[in-house]
């Protein structure tokens, strides 16, 4: 209350208005730069041209087919890595011995960039969905596993021994003590992984040539279809925004019951 600025009428209204103005300003600048000849149109087509092209794409079945391919790799890869990471994380996390024994290996494998696996994927699978999956799973697995391990480590020992004293078995404790503690961490992991998964799905398509939006972007680039290339890049950005928003809504839903919505651990 003390910091309320008395001259600012109502922030809730001005915020979105300014945001809309920001987008408008950006579009106007993008329109003006090529129109004024600051950058040639063959390198940077004006915003209106690109938006029209994007509109045309949205009406084409082929475009949606490509979106479907990309999203399949994204969703499948994400699902595999979440399941694998949760199962492994729970097993490793609930044993001190395993946690210590695997620490160095996890810390060694985690920073390996998943794009290093591109040649391997090409060699093993070629330009197919499996290549995308290999990269997506490798990249997102660590994000989720690490958060699950943090979450299991965060279990309150008092709560655990209370549950033990009431005769709850290993599985029941997993269900009623470990799982609820871990869930907020898991959601953080899923949020990070879902962004990374999209990056790797597109990368695989762009470089290996697995079917999907990334492959189409590669085609437009090599074919000199500049307007279409910009339109497709915009489309991938929009998919990214939708994924981010969707995951955030999911996170809020799942954690609604969580009395103290955990403030995020920095670092």
């Amino acid at each position: 209350m003390a910091s309320t600025n008395s001259r600012m009428p109502s922030r809730r209204v001005t915020g979105p208005l300014l945001g809309a103005a920001g987008i408008l300003l950006f579009l106007v600048a993008w329109e003006a730069v090529p129109r004024l000849g600051l950058v040639q149109e063959k390198f940077l087509p004006p915003a209106s041209t690109v938006l029209v092209s994007l509109g045309q794409y949205l009406g084409q079945g082929g475009f949606w087919h490509d979106v479907g391919e990309t999203m399949t790799a994204w969703a499948l890869g994400l699902a595999i890595s979440i399941v694998a990471a949760v199962v492994l994380g729970l097993i490793i996390g609930s044993s001190t011995f395993l946690r210590r024994a695997t620490h160095s290996t996890v810390e060694f494998l985690r920073p390996i960039p998943s794009v290093a696996l591109i040649p391997l994927a090409v060699l093993l699978f070629g330009a197919k969905l499996e290549s995308s999956l290999l990269l997506v799973v490798y990249a997102s697995f660590w994000q989720v596993l690490l958060q699950v391990l943090y979450g299991v480590a965060d279990v309150d020992p008092v709560a655990d021994s209370t549950a033990r004293s009431y005769g709850l078995g290993r599985l029941a404790r997993m269900r009623y003590v470990v799982w609820p503690t871990m869930l907020p961490y898991l959601m953080t992991g899923i949020r990070l992984a879902s962004a990374v998964a999209l990056i790797l799905a597109i990368t695989a398509e762009l470089i290996i040539g697995s079917p999907g939006l990334g492959y189409q972007i590669g085609l437009t680039q090599s074919g000199g279809a500049v307007v279409e290339m910009y339109a497709l890049i915009l489309a991938t950005g929009m998919i990214g925004v939708l994924i981010n928003v969707g995951v955030r809504i999911l996170e809020k839903r799942v954690l609604k019951w969580h009395a103290s919505v955990r403030s995020e651990v920095v670092v």
Binding site: T4, S6, S10
Partner: peptide, 10 residues
Amino acid sequence: KVYQVDAGEI
């Protein structure tokens, strides 16, 4: 000192 808030003034 009067604070301006959405609901009026305090």
